[in-house]
Design a binder for these strands. Structure first.
Lengths: 199, 199, 199, 199
DNA sequence: GATGAATGAGGATTCATTCAT
DNA sequence: AATGAATGAATCCTCATTCAT
């Protein structure tokens, strides 16, 4: 591999790759090391143990997703614009960096159980941004939602469902990915917006 | 464990339990056997190997979900009723038999790659029921959808997203499960129905 | 398999087949039973254990080889004729019933260590016939050998070497089996015979 | 065991020992490790798997036998001398390093089927040396053979038969090993040599 | 005669991790 | 900063054998 890239990053990158391609249970320290071309011991110079590696993976992905969404949101004007920016930011991240996106959801219970609770809060940052945006929309009467928190979580959950189906290749082969995605996101969003063009 | 229950069923039950609680990668033949209180060898009397066990698990869950949905659909009158029955059937199954529901999605790529393709088709049975129901609804002008197949898949994906969030305990603790679920399902469904009570 | 054949014989036959095709280490009671289409337990109705089965296998092969050679020897007139009959009997048995022949040599030390010593003596029956024949030949001045016992063993060993090479498929592909065999046997025998056609 | 000897060599040595004493089917990675006093895992630091270990064993034995014979052949003058040197080289190797000799023939079909074909060719090196020597002998009219290739293979097969009988302890206890060997080799060789001392 | 259910021991192999260098 | 050697525990799976029926 490219020798310019710091080993730590190579480890994270390779881990993500394995996780994405082969799933959690076939991620092994040795395989990572072999793929990179270093000794397995070297990984321990950067990560205390496998859990630490996995947690770092999650943490960095969550952080990157948060930043991506925040960046997208910043450029938006007005709540509707920002609302859509957040959703598109989420979907775009998922498809542009699927390996990083998957990490957030793939590493399940076992590793998660040992994941420091406080770091979960970070993950909520952009969720709270969504809640705030919805509340603004309500105030400006452009978004129609009863419970912003519930709506925000629901949107997130639905988006995740839609994105997962595509990324996990569970989509029926007769359906066009892009069309499916556009339609689905549209459907998720539309119910929340106040119809401006009533005849 | 209860000695009345056939060992084969105990194995399946225990496997599901492990899968649900600890995730795919910590499901081992030994652990299953130990939990039940039999030798690991005994499992091989009922299943050729771990793959066979996992595939049986998936197969039975898919079958049970299909039957549950079909049963719910049968009792319905008219496309809208049936549309809602299918969706409720799905959600109810997920919450009444979460371990069985999870199995369908949890056992990922590795094992799936070796899962006989023909059995996937069975899984589509209730998906096709949904498509047909939507098409009927369109014919009767009670459902408004451009591409029934895309819509059906989208609904399924969104439902799965919503259900997963709850089952995986990723829901914000301040949000009430039931409310979240009701609101979400409502939101997923409503966009498709032709508004009958327009003022 | 043919239901006419007694199970005991089917077991022996199948065992020989496995031994010949796959070697000693992949001969398992279950595989034998599966191949025949009975339960593994059934084998124990006819054989106390695996050792007993193997020993029976050896014993029957040795017996059959002995009988074959004795039969061949009986028909011969005079020591030279009988000498050649014995050798041809050995070689013919090896090639007509290779699976039975191989059994005699294939099942090695481990099982042999537990093989009742007295049964080894049986195996010597035709060896002693050879010794006696040689001695007769010496008496009649048609065979020229200093130590009949040594010669007999040597002949046997050389024949086994030659036969093994062919049966184990270790023969160079450019060499014709039959020619190799004929030449080799010829060479082994000829040194012992008194040249009758000396000018 | 001696701690001076590299583990890799100890593994090979111990494997040979097991193979020789107990036969192929009771050679297990664990047993090897236990005998040496290391963990079974350690073997995998030097050999990819059991096959690799077995193949290495064969390869090294074949190589050593080849070298031994070539060395013996080099010192000889003239084809007859060399002819005998080769044969003696073979027999001497078998008796001086019986464990290494046995390896060449003992590891049968199963493992052999996966043995890289190209390495078989190496094994033929000294066989071809024998062929060449016979051809030289024919040219110089000291060896009388019609088909050198066939003869070479036949000699090899007969030698192997004789050597095996002794090494496998199948020799009648009343027969002296050395005498048996000397007589046998003599008998194998003599037929090929042109009688120089005709009266 | 024959079997199904069950098991303890052992098979090869992989794993995360440690330690001395 | 990096590694080679080593390991205990775990993985799936197969084996010969037993026992009740």
């Amino acid at each position: 591999m490219n020798e310019e890239i710091p080993l730590r990053d190579q480890i994270l990158e390779t881990s993500r790759h394995f996780l994405f391609e082969k799933g959690h249970s076939s991620l092994s320290m040795r395989k990572i090391a072999n793929k990179i071309g270093v000794s397995a011991t070297s990984i321990y110079l950067y990560f205390d143990n496998k859990d630490h590696l996995l947690h770092t993976l999650i943490e960095e992905s969550v952080e990157e997703l948060s930043v991506a969404i925040e960046l997208a949101a910043e450029e938006a004007n007005g709540p509707i614009d920002r609302f859509e920016a957040i959703i598109n930011g989420y979907v775009d991240f998922a498809f542009n960096k699927p390996e990083k996106y998957q990490v957030i959801y793939m590493v399940r219970s076992e590793a998660m159980a040992r994941y420091p609770k406080e770091k979960f809060r970070k993950a909520r940052r952009c969720y709270e941004l969504l809640v705030k945006t919805i509340q603004e929309g309500i105030a400006k009467r452009v978004i129609k939602v009863e419970k912003p928190m519930v709506a925000a979580y629901s949107i997130w959950a639905q988006l995740h469902g839609v994105v997962s189906v595509v990324l996990n290749q569970r989509l029926d082969s007769r359906i066009d990915r892009k069309e499916f995605l556009k339609e689905s996101v549209n459907h998720i969003v539309e119910g929340f917006l106040v119809r401006t063009t009533v005849s």
